[in-house]
Design a protein around this nucleic acid. Structure first.
Lengths: 205, 205
DNA sequence: CGAATAGTTGATCGTAAGATCAATAAGGTT
DNA sequence: AACCTTATTGATCTTACGATCAACTATTCG
């Protein structure tokens, strides 16, 4: 082999800007999820295999880069048709809730999502408040209305009860990715049991 | 008044070491809970109204100071007689669980406790894993054994169910102190309802 | 009151981190 | 193969931060 053709290209330099930018953002997501939002740009550059100064060719400042990281992580955000699905009375409410949390847990029980959400929450970012507000209005509130129609027991669910259901489920992801303690590989069973307990309590089984 | 006697002492300097140390640690607890574990010592000193160099007279390094912060926050740790209380069959299990979570939520639903626990969890501190392991062994496992004896329904609680109950409750504190979104001033009712749902699901009501 | 003790300060050192910019060289074009 | 464009680099500036230490002064004791 000639010295100019590398079978394992040691470092493909000079990428098209779009691609390089994507590579930086994706690397930054994992990096900041690992070390926190004040990880330094030199370590990030080292991990990416580029120079630190290159980062500032694609982002005017570190906080610009962090903006791109947020955007990238929360782009796969809640689909807009969950409200319609959750209030579709043709399906049993149990199926609707289980389908939602099965999908939702797949979405957020990820190292990057969980940790960056927690880091930015602690940093006081408005993002988190907006997100939770949105979740409450778009998911939990419609679900609550449905449940209050469905409930046949003496008691009827309150909004705070739904936050409790939600929190109990999300806590699985917190144990897994924040505290990194042993927890089920697949959260499906735990989620199913939690939902079933909840529905049973209000005679919605 | 003479210039030497200040009616509002502008800055009481030269405290006895013990007292100064306590003052520093207490200030550091709030400070690091606010800004995170890599808040800088100059800002901390400013908040305390002392010089930055003074901090290093009481702690050899910043991480030494953080050790003292951890210790101070987690000193009011779980009492050792919860296991005995939780397994005392003379009281209804509902009362035992409610009493525990009433007390426990008072203990941990505090700005400093919640945030420093989350910060150190994200930093990968062994402290959190040890704490959760301890909680599981000393509180949840005995409780689980009790419940498995008490349950009369077709289904019997699993360890993961207890983590779900626990997580749903802890999530109230997370909403309050990490994300800082609206949530009940007094968590008692939400906790009571969550516990009652849980017990009802296993016919332990 | 004066001296001794020691809590506290201000100046400073070394390094780490964000940011800048002229110089370099990779990849396409002719 | 020579040339041009521009992605990438290496050196560097400035500021911020942890840590050190001699000097200062509040307080105590004789």
């Amino acid at each position: 082999m000639t010295p100019t053709e590398h079978p394992y290209p040691p470092d493909r330099r000079r990428l098209p800007p779009e691609e390089r930018r994507r590579q930086i953002v994706e690397g930054a997501v994992t990096f900041f999820a690992d070390v926190g939002l004040d990880g330094n740009t030199r370590d990030l550059a080292k991990r990416l295999g580029v120079t630190q100064s290159l980062l500032f060719n694609y982002f005017a400042s570190k906080s610009d880069l962090l903006e791109a990281v947020y955007e990238h992580v929360y782009l796969n955000r809640l689909s807009d048709d969950w409200p319609a699905f959750l209030t579709d009375s043709r399906q049993p409410i149990r199926d609707r809730v289980l389908t939602f949390y099965e999908s939702y847990s797949k979405l957020i029980f990820q190292y990057e999502w969980m940790r960056i959400f927690m880091f930015s929450g602690l940093a006081g970012a408005a993002l988190n408040r907006r997100y939770l507000d949105h979740l409450g209005r778009v998911i939990l509130a419609p679900l609550l209305a449905q449940m209050q129609n469905t409930a046949t027991g003496p008691d009827v669910p309150q909004m705070e009860d739904l936050w409790n259901l939600h929190g109990g489920i999300v806590y699985i992801g917190i144990r897994q990715h924040i505290y990194q303690v042993p927890c089920p590989d697949d959260p499906t069973e735990a989620i199913t049991r939690a939902v079933d307990r909840f529905l049973a309590a209000f005679n919605m089984g």
